[in-house]
Design a protein around this nucleic acid. Sequence first.
DNA 1: TCACCACCTGAATCGTGTC
DNA 2: AGACACGATTCAGGTGGTG
Lengths: 377, 377
Amino acid sequence: MVLRRSPKSARPQRDRIIIGDSLEQLAKIPDASVDLVFADPPYNLQLDGELLRPNNTRVDGVDNDWDRFASFADYDAFCRTWLGECRRILKPDGAIWVIGSYHNVFRLGATMQDLGFWILNDVVWRKVNPMPNFRGRRFTNAHETLIWAARDQKSRYTFNYESLKAFNDDLQMRSDWLFPICSGPERLKDDDGRKAHPTQKPEALLNRVLLASSNVGDVVLDPFFGTGTTGAVAKRLGRSYIGIERDKDYAAAARERIAKVRQLPASALETQPSKRSEPRVPFGTIIELGILKPGSALFDPRRKIRAEVKADGTLSWQKSQGSIHRLGAHVQGKQACNGWTFWHFETGGKLKPIDELRERAKQQLGLARMPALIAAE
Amino acid sequence: MVLRRSPKSARPQRDRIIIGDSLEQLAKIPDASVDLVFADPPYNLQLDGELLRPNNTRVDGVDNDWDRFASFADYDAFCRTWLGECRRILKPDGAIWVIGSYHNVFRLGATMQDLGFWILNDVVWRKVNPMPNFRGRRFTNAHETLIWAARDQKSRYTFNYESLKAFNDDLQMRSDWLFPICSGPERLKDDDGRKAHPTQKPEALLNRVLLASSNVGDVVLDPFFGTGTTGAVAKRLGRSYIGIERDKDYAAAARERIAKVRQLPASALETQPSKRSEPRVPFGTIIELGILKPGSALFDPRRKIRAEVKADGTLSWQKSQGSIHRLGAHVQGKQACNGWTFWHFETGGKLKPIDELRERAKQQLGLARMPALIAAE
DNA sequence: TCACCACCTGAATCGTGTC
DNA sequence: AGACACGATTCAGGTGGTG
């Protein structure tokens, strides 16, 4: 196994909040030093005047300097710069998440594609409790959009497929996620009891993002840290974080918040093992261990074909001979075949896939994951 | 009432399919002559090679000339042209809908903003039954995105807010919509029984779009007509359509399809004049799914009152019109009423509460619970 | 007629390690 | 760097045949 590690000088400091302008501070972070980026950039809302509820109370919307840009061109230039920096900072197999609304997300997505990011999914955060449309002139804006992209088309990005599937009652996780907005005790308040940050994201959202697309020990960069939701969830999940925030009050609130977070015990952070990551047991081993004898018969699921196991780990049928995969593809007239699931052995008059024999081999080889061990770790 | 009408020379021919290249044919349509555009442009999917299911069958993906572009720049130039033409053709108070996936929707949205369109909402079509991710490398791509935009920031666009709200059981319609993909009898087949068009959209989707953002008699332009879903729904709802399609086979299928469509009676098309949480399936969905037809009759339990179902999800009786709940309360002289149990439909000479129709809708939407579970609770 | 089951299909940017 | 072998991977709903 090769440990790919950046030179020590290129390792960024972990678990810290950098106070300063995102563009300036990103420029100081070394190349290829971060595993994942989560970015919640200014939305460029272009609000015009204030909005009143039907009862004439004022809606406390986003009205901050940091959300004002003179034009789409200005906003695009800003995004090209920070997204380009993030791409430089990402490791080759790194990935990025960006969240936005219809005001800015189209510009973000197009810029990401132009820079060479490879979009993996757009994910919709459906809000359980969105703000209604008070004027009755549009649909209730009940969602925001996240873009998940790999650094390159060729990046071997992290995706904890099995974990998410287990999470979702054994169904693949879909691209539409349902969460409440951040409110109640989770919502940070300033000394006057007003919300500390206008766009604080729910921890549940970051929790799913980080569980899905990072591993324990990974470094997660958030260039618009705000009150530190990314840092809080990263710490809880055993990931490291780097946050950049130019507002000292936000940064202070984030620091205080993260200090209260405890990392979950290691056992709680284990992910569902993927079959891909399990040790490989080749078919020949099944024969070497005496689990299948040379000369014994294997069958297709319908018992139409009876192939014979050779001592060298191949299968033969009529005049054809090859690996379990090749012969399986050949007898079906297909390009490819997973021989482990296609071929069956007979036991007690019934057919079972030879995949089951691998489990026996793993146990004999001491490669099996014992349930007791999982519990003890 | 003021009839705003373009000069006669500037009125486009209505209810017709123009066979030809979109860019060429759009150029021939007069300025400011159309009320609404619905566009389902090529997605520029950039597929590479074939995809096999776990059982080694081949996925019949989009592999058409019309979806291939040499680069993002080419695709952007194409979109700038057709979107620019659409904007010229739209009346000053007109609006546009564009549908796409993450492959192209960011480029579409950014181009629309650059051209001066004013985005009103992005709307998510959540698919009940999307294609799974066979390789387990991403989230199931379970939605597509629609962008709804006015021609200008100042446009006084059409939005039938009250209708949609009644349609949705007196709750504002949200920006996330749930529909099945187009399949079954609705899906057009060619002579060989294969899908006539790879990307046919469900009529329920167009139904909501046109009900929400157009009026009876409006002209709807679809520059990528395909097999004519826009035309079929427009005709049924009493709107006019202009479709542009360069493939003669698609255009012929569209013509044949639209010929079979009957316009709903005028009374069913009346909209709600401008004036909880239990139902997961709003009444409008019952109509969208075709379980109740607009124009059909509902009765009170004693069959004293005969109300009529409107296409926009309202009910009318004598001079009153409103949601099933409002009208139910009104006819009883009460403050409130659960329309689901008050209103009945006739089947086999007997009356049954419309609540039973919700179960059918839930099944179609995949929201049904297992009978065994219900029985066990 | 109904229950059940096997089979088909949908806008899809859908591997990885070794030689 | 490229070729090749190995082998991991699917959900909801419609359709049609069978008992």
